[in-house]
């Protein structure tokens, strides 16, 4: 499972284990699964898709102004606004 954290300046919105997250990067969407190579990317305003399980509908969250980092610890998305 991928450790996923979504943080806004006001609070830690999510911190959970998920299957996959599709991040709307500035240069195109990218999906992050467990064991993804380290990436730092800026984000364009859009929806982030969270897949809790392999199959099933993704949960959509609109985010604005942000930044994503993938490292050994998982995926961290810093967004200015969520929702």
């Amino acid at each position: 499972m991928l450790h996923f954290e979504l943080v806004t300046p006001e609070k830690l919105v999510r911190s959970e284990e998920v299957h996959m997250v599709v991040v709307p990067g500035t240069e195109g969407d990218f999906g992050v699964l467990e064991g993804h190579a380290p990436v730092m990317s800026t984000i364009r305003d859009g929806a982030i898709q969270i897949y809790r399980t392999d199959k099933g509908e993704p949960e959509l969250l609109a985010i604005e102004g942000g930044f994503a980092e993938v490292n050994a610890g998982g995926l961290t998305v810093l967004a200015e606004r969520v929702g």
Binding site: F67, N71, A72
Partner: peptide, 30 residues
Amino acid sequence: DDGGAAVEYEPDEESILADLLPRNIAIQIF
């Protein structure tokens, strides 16, 4: 902990930094 792995930057280091700087000031003021 980069874990020794090369980090990929999108778009590149400079533009990410330029994007983060105003954010950093905003968060300091906040």
